[in-house]
């Protein structure tokens, strides 16, 4: 019965022929030997070969093993070439090795790999979330050196009245408060100047197509004051941030009461 199992099957015979000539048979033998240590059932193809080589020496080989071997070879298919496949097989086998209960080695490797990827992604995400923009940090308590500007602008749509010229009048106070709010708002929302801005004050209203005089105060930190004076808090910059604000307002607001003529804007540094 055992012989039948081998002979009736064409493939084992062929392998037998090829293996017989060279060292391949030896290597497969060796592998078989190594595999025996583990004693796993799927290693039977090797066993068959060995048996094919030495049929006479193992006449008492029980039919069970051979049958199983033939079956296993069937599963492997007709493309069985021992030498090349053996290394791939070995890797497959090793990967399928049971590490712990049903957990196989390939699962462990895959898990470790995914873990590494996850760690990288999380750390990158954290990096961008935790990232602190140094330019947004400042300590206002260090801003001690004042810098002031004054100037004037025209409100061509307002009519000048005697009441407005008196600083204490209700009307004058309301208008001044409104304009101060506007100036303070525009400088506070400026990304570059906002942090240095301290206060805006409307000092007077004058006749002559309605002119308002204003005064702006900024505070700067002592250590960078030279650079700030020359660049960020230069007259050009403070003036143009105001002018730009007025130009942007120009279109929708032109007919409004509070319209400020951008061309009339004047500003100078107060010493």
């Amino acid at each position: 019965m055992d012989l039948e199992g081998v002979v009736t099957h064409g493939i084992p015979l062929q392998t037998f022929k090829t293996n017989g000539n060279d060292g391949a048979s030896y290597s497969s033998h060796e592998q078989g030997g190594a595999d025996d240590v583990d004693g796993a059932p799927h290693r039977n193809p090797d066993t068959t070969e060995r048996q094919g080589l030495l049929p006479a020496q193992t006449p008492s080989c029980n039919g069970e093993t051979v049958d199983h071997a033939a079956g296993a070879q069937n599963k492997l298919g007709n493309t069985y070439t021992p030498q090349k496949n053996s290394s791939v097989d070995r890797i497959k086998r090793e990967l399928n090795e049971v590490v712990y209960r049903k957990v196989k080695l390939w699962m462990v490797i895959l898990f470790i790999f995914l873990l590494i990827v996850a760690v990288i992604i999380i750390s990158l995400y954290l990096c961008s979330v935790i990232y602190e923009d140094e330019d947004e940090n400042f300590d206002r308590s260090l801003f001690t050196v004042p810098r002031s500007f004054n100037g004037s602008f025209q409100l061509p749509n307002l009519v000048f009245t005697e009441e407005l010229s008196t600083h204490s009048s209700n009307e004058s106070q309301t208008l001044a408060a409104h304009l101060q709010e506007k100036l303070a708002g525009l400088y506070r929302s400026s990304p570059a100047l906002g942090r240095y801005f301290s206060e805006a004050e409307i000092s007077a209203f004058r006749n002559g197509s309605f002119i308002a005089d204003y005064q702006l105060t900024f505070v700067m930190p002592e250590d960078q004051q030279d650079q700030l004076r020359n660049v960020t808090l230069s007259r050009e910059m403070v003036y143009n941030v105001f002018r730009q604000f007025l130009y942007d307002q120009e279109q929708p607001d032109e007919s409004g009461q509070m319209y400020i003529d951008p061309v009339s804007l004047k500003m100078s540094l107060r010493h």
Binding site: L124, C127, S128, Y131, D133, D135, P191, A192, V231, T232, M237, N240
Partner: peptide, 12 residues
């Protein structure tokens, strides 16, 4: 490509 989105702050 990754990491924080930087800002360029223009004065002018």
């Amino acid at each position: 490509v990754i990491g924080p989105r930087y800002k360029i702050r223009l004065l002018r």
